[in-house]
């Protein structure tokens, strides 16, 4: 651009009038930035606890809202299709915890997959989940011959429900 307008040396009188407003604007953006970065993300740095970490809290572990993350222990899933009632165990390799949840799980829910549950650990030692989330890995695999992806889920819920 050869003929682009070049800035004049003097910004004009508007400059002083606008300065206050601009200052407020930029200040708001920066404060928002800082607040969200330090406060918002800060709270979420430990987005979920492992069963071991929750257990390590001792008495403080019970009856407080937490997110718990772990792997669905194979063959621990019990699904009652009529009552929409789901029970399974999550583990992190060392500790296992029983989870009770209402409603049908997301379609990727199956043995061995990572899940996150939101809720509270009841005094009975069973984690009462109000929200079940399935964590997907970064792997994308073409299905083996003759295998349909939904079959795993269907099999799991159908057979376990009987």
């Amino acid at each position: 651009m050869s003929n682009e307008p070049q800035e004049p040396e003097n910004g004009g009188e508007k400059r002083t009038r606008r300065r206050g407003l601009t200052f407020l604007g930029v200040g708001a953006v920066l404060i928002g930035f800082g607040y969200l970065l330090l406060g918002g993300i800060g709270d979420n740095l430990v987005y979920y606890l492992t069963p071991s970490e929750l257990e390590a809290r001792g008495d403080a572990a019970y009856e407080t809202s937490v997110r718990l993350g772990g792997v669905v222990i194979p063959e621990s899933v019990q699904w009652d299709a009529d009552a929409l009632d789901l029970r399974f165990k999550v583990g992190d390799g060392t500790t296992e915890m029983e989870v009770h949840s209402k409603g049908a799980p997301p379609q990727m829910f199956r043995d061995g997959i990572e899940v996150l549950v939101e809720g509270r650990l009841a005094s009975s030692g069973v984690f009462q989940s109000t929200n079940l989330m399935v964590k997907h890995s970064n792997e994308y695999r073409a299905p083996e011959e003759g295998q349909r992806p939904q079959d795993l889920y269907q099999d799991l819920l159908n057979t376990e429900g009987e």
Binding site: L36, G40, I41, N44, L45, Y47, P105, P106, Q107, M108, N131, L132, M133, V134, K135, H136
Partner: peptide, 14 residues
């Protein structure tokens, strides 16, 4: 459909 939620305040999303 995959996670089971529209949104969650995890560090990536936040």
């Amino acid at each position: 459909p995959t996670w089971g939620v529209w949104w969650t305040w995890d560090p990536r999303l936040t």
